[in-house]
Design a protein around this nucleic acid. Structure first.
Lengths: 236, 236
DNA sequence: ACTCTTCCAATTGGATCCAATAACCACTAG
DNA sequence: CTAGTGGTTATTGGATCCAATTGGAAGAGT
């Protein structure tokens, strides 16, 4: 794509998700263009794209405002991600999981076992687990071999917690996080087992539940309203 | 949104889906702008949006080409729609279906019963059924009360047969169509029954299967490759 | 004092202009 | 005769310009 346009889109996405632009705030083209060091043209192309992505909303009939995400939106996004990944996983099981992917998944399991082997988390463990987690989910989605599903998931990722980074870490309570990750990783084990055995319905249910666990682990009312937290999360 | 930009997006979407622009063909800004009677600016904004929607693909590092949809893409889109509507239906069942929506759904059932009461289809029946079908599905999605899910479905509709009009009518074989609609309408009855009883898991399974039926009813290999057929379908 | 109307300014949206780049064609050399 | 190189042309992408619409502010009238 256009270098400048692509840059503008990426940059604006980050700014919105990080909360640099507050929800409800009007986004004006000129200051934005100045902030990004380009003319109005690329940002004028970027704004409708971001509106289409759902990050901006049309403000009356003049320009756009930053769209806020309600706790319900975030919960729905997690639920939707669960359904989409569940569908992907079922397809993998039904088509028969490919050997190299299975191998990679098992490597993810080992990594997780390693991290959680101690009875508590050390510095850097969350990041390592988050990386592994992201890889785990990505592998399954890849092996579903459906561009349509991948697209839908990619779209959903634009909502806070809608993406694979949705394992929420509240750094102030590392012990709770350990319990959370422990359960999640047990689910990973079950998922791989089901995939290996070709148990489509089972893996679909497991994957839905895997997302559901994330949803209930987040104090949505608290997190959704404060963009401070969103920023902190995404830094993980 | 921008009047001209919005117009360009709608118009181009139609042109692509109708096959006026053949898959793989390069889309040039200038002739497009002339065809739509506007300057390059609105179409230049529209093209990246359509690319994001998945209707266009970036051609190397210069401009866009019309994206073609493989039979697999279309099958996946139908499957995905099934999963999304199934999720929506489950939510409705679990929250408890709202009275007015239930009433409207039953009106849809009656209409369908009326149309299918005779043992064959008459002129105009397909259109009437398609309208009712579209309304039926829209009502359920509405009552799921999730903007996130609605969005995902709207996005999916951009792929041929990904939307609610996905009941494929092959006008050359009205008798086969009758059988198809008869089965689909039986499913509608079951779905409403399950919704009324709050049977979430059942309605989820039913809705998935409802989409699956559509998928297998289409000779994908035949239809997907010929845009003539897509054009004809969407005319229904 | 409050409200309504009018005017001004700012910002958006559309058109045009300019530069950079990529593709195509022709010509030349091996 | 073929392949490579250079040039030309066309098209994209970015910047600027212009007009139109909207929102706000100020002033006047009730």
């Amino acid at each position: 794509m256009n270098t400048l346009l692509a840059h503008a889109v990426r940059q604006l996405r980050e700014m919105i998700l990080r909360g640099d632009l507050a929800p409800g705030q009007r986004v004006a083209e000129i200051p934005l263009a100045e902030a990004l060091g380009m003319s109005r043209t690329p940002v004028r192309q970027a704004l409708p794209m971001l509106a289409q992505e759902g990050l901006l909303a049309e403000s009356g009939n003049r320009g756009y405002v930053v769209r806020g995400f309600s706790p319900a939106d975030i919960a729905d996004a997690i639920e939707l991600r669960g359904a989409l990944e569940a569908l992907a996983a079922r397809r993998v099981a039904e088509h028969g999981i490919s050997r190299p992917i299975l191998k990679e998944l098992k490597k993810c399991l080992d990594e997780g076992d390693e991290i959680l082997g101690e009875r508590c988390l050390h510095e850097g463990d969350e990041t390592a687990y988050a990386d592994m987690n992201e890889r785990f989910h990505r592998l399954i989605i890849e092996d579903a071999r459906s561009e349509v599903i991948s697209e839908a998931l990619r779209r959903n990722s634009h909502i806070p917690f809608g993406g694979a980074q949705a394992l929420a870490f509240d750094k102030t309570r590392l012990d709770d996080t350990y319990e959370l990750l422990y359960v999640a990783h047990r689910q990973h084990h079950c998922i791989v087992e089901a995939l290996e055995r070709g148990q489509g319905a089972r893996v679909q249910a497991l994957m839905s539940e895997h997302a559901e666990a994330v949803k209930s682990s987040i104090n949505l009312a608290q997190f959704a309203l404060s963009h401070e937290n969103v920023r902190r999360m995404r830094g993980v």
